[in-house]
């Protein structure tokens, strides 16, 4: 059996990859994908802990997280489409009417 800490390590690596993606990439679609990676790394950790503790609560949380992630992407893509219609870009550095 694989120790739980291996799963946690893997999920931490995925989480950090997601964070790096959000911080460095400038395409809004890639940013959404990076956020998804962060959420799914948390799901992996939750499932691993739930399996180690023989407890279903962690597995149930995963479903909630999946639903919330889907809702978030739905709203995000709607906003992105609205912005794309008026600005013809998905690069977040090009969207800068507000600053100061």
């Amino acid at each position: 059996m694989v120790p739980t800490s291996y799963y946690v390590l893997l999920s931490a690596v995925l989480f950090i990859l997601g964070v790096i993606g959000v911080v460095t990439r400038r395409n809004a679609l890639v940013l959404f994908m990076s956020v998804e990676l962060m959420l799914n790394s948390a799901n992996l950790a939750l499932v691993a802990f739930a399996a180690a503790r023989q407890d279903v609560a962690g597995q149930i949380v995963v479903f909630f997280v999946i639903v919330v992630a889907a809702a978030e992407v739905a709203v995000g893509l709607a906003l992105l489409v609205a912005i794309f219609r008026s600005k013809r870009t998905t690069d977040v550095d090009e969207i800068h009417a507000l600053r100061g």
């Binding site: 739980t4 946690v8 999920s11 989480f15 997601g18 964070v19 959000v22 959404f32 956020v35 962060m38 959420l39 790394s41 948390a42 799901n43 950790a45 939750l46 691993a48 802990f49 739930a50 180690a52 609560a57 962690g58 949380v61 997280v65 919330v68 978030e72 995000g76």
Partner: peptide
């Protein structure tokens, strides 16, 4: 959404 990712991962770790 970025902050939400932090919270979910934090919840996972505290659960663990």
């Amino acid at each position: 959404a970025f902050a939400g990712g932090f919270i979910v991962f934090g919840i996972a770790l505290i659960y663990g």
